[in-house]
């Protein structure tokens, strides 16, 4: 399982860095030091497709694969999910700190100055 997860990562890296959609053969070529069989790559691709991370287009006899969203878009979606405090939708336990109101932010800026002063003052 760990190996499959690691392969999924590598394949996604290839897809994200490719300027356009690629074939399974392209992926094998792009990962030369892994010595992959084309069937292995196809397995990984179908797993990624099931997870809605990869889309497939038909191109003659071959299939071309492309990521459904950029890495940044996925990161943004994860952030929304992590910071969503709705009762049981939140996957994360809690963010390091909750968001603060503008009023609280002003007081916090004062506290920050005090904290920095004490830290640098050796107190």
């Amino acid at each position: 399982m760990a190996r499959l997860g690691e392969l999924e990562r590598a394949v996604m890296e290839v897809l994200w860095s490719a300027p356009e959609s690629v074939t399974a053969r392209d992926i094998v070529t792009a990962l030369p030091d892994r010595d992959l069989a084309a069937t292995t790559v196809l397995t990984v691709l179908s797993r990624l497709e099931r997870k809605d991370l990869v889309a497939r287009d038909r191109d003659g006899r071959a299939h071309r694969y492309r990521p459904t969203a950029s890495r940044e878009e996925h990161a943004a979606a994860l952030m929304r999910e992590a910071l969503d405090t709705a009762e049981d939708r939140s996957a994360a336990l809690a963010s390091f700190a909750s968001q603060v109101s503008p009023g609280e932010a002003a007081a916090l800026a004062g506290a920050l100055a005090e904290a920095v002063r004490r830290r640098t003052g050796g107190g």
Partner: peptide
């Protein structure tokens, strides 16, 4: 405390 205050003041929507 520094980290927390920095975090709070940075993330103001």
């Amino acid at each position: 405390a520094c980290a927390l205050a920095r975090f709070g003041t940075a993330g103001v929507p």
